[in-house]
Design a binder for these strands. Structure first.
Lengths: 170, 170
DNA sequence: TTTGACAGTTCCATTTTAGAACTATAAGGT
DNA sequence: ACCTTATAGTTCTAAAATGGAACTGTCAAA
């Protein structure tokens, strides 16, 4: 499976990973949520090479996750801000942070706390069912094919590969 | 920033990304949640090279996300199953899938639906505040340093890099 | 005795990334 | 006029990661 193909897989997870599933992209998005907007800002906060930063920003703009907006003429300068599609990545970011807070902190505790303006308290993000509001756990969820599924999606991919292997062997 | 350093950054997101923030690792974890347990299963479902698969599985075991359990003697065979630490990644997976369901589906609709056994309905995952139960949005969250924060974390990293740049120039 | 399943390991070519230097435009100081 | 700084890139080469295929070893079944 090549990376281009990922975005065409009949799997929302594979498609999403094709867009944001690499280390620098995720860190760039972290910075976006921390209000970084400019090239130099990303570069110095992350220590990413300028080459890769330029390339990743272009990709995020192409994908409609960031918008490139001019903030001055001569010399032309732009800043990168999250679109709604980008802002919608927030639950992913929070889920990642929360797992790190649970499993990767050292003895000193969490590096960052999150306060909910509405209720004023420091909180953890909790994932719940949109229908009944109960917290979700993997065991309570049953996965079944939706309208966009290929017929027998995993099997067909598997069989395709096996067929290829057979034809090579012949 | 090298990848080893990531896991030592005072940022739960960076640390988590250091562990699961690459494309193959995320796809391997998807398979784990879909009940794949064996080497050949991962390999044929994903089309990953055997070399990388072996390497990634080892890393996930080292990190305590998978456990390698013997399921037969002679020849020795093992299967890989999620630990609790691994199962705790579920909200990240669901958040990724949900973003894809919202922004990456084609005209045919979602490839997979999720049914909540407790209430019997197909659902979307929603992220809420642990304290007040309200759905979260990025704008309503204020981030502030916790006990594990470095003093002025971003600034210090930035200054370190600037100092380096200066000393190179001199 | 051969074939096939399984779980890897090894090897080489190709692709990506790291690291540093270079380009370009303009403002501001001296 | 000349030098420095800020900003946003681009270009170059060496090092690292990945892809692709073949190979190893153990055992069961045909």
């Amino acid at each position: 499976m090549k990376w281009k193909e990922l975005e065409e897989e009949p799997c929302s997870m594979a498609r999403t990973i094709g867009v944001i599933g690499d280390r620098w992209t995720l860190l760039i998005l972290r910075e976006c949520f921390l209000r970084t907007r400019r090239f130099e800002g990303f570069q110095s906060a992350l220590g990413i090479t300028r080459h890769l930063l330029a390339e990743r920003l272009k990709k995020l703009v192409r994908q409609g996750i960031l918008r490139r907006i001019p903030y001055q003429e001569s010399p032309k300068r732009h800043e990168y801000i999250l679109t709604q599609k980008g802002i919608d990545l927030y639950p992913i970011m929070m889920a990642i942070v929360h797992w790190g807070d649970t499993h990767m902190v050292d003895e000193r505790g969490r590096p960052l706390l999150h306060q909910h303006r509405k209720c004023g308290k420091d909180f953890d993000p909790v994932m719940v069912c949109s229908e009944c509001g109960e917290p979700l756990s993997a065991k309570e969820v049953h996965t079944h094919p939706g309208p966009g599924a290929r017929s027998l999606p995993e099997k067909s991919a598997l069989e395709t590969r096996k067929a290829k292997a057979r034809s090579r062997a012949a």
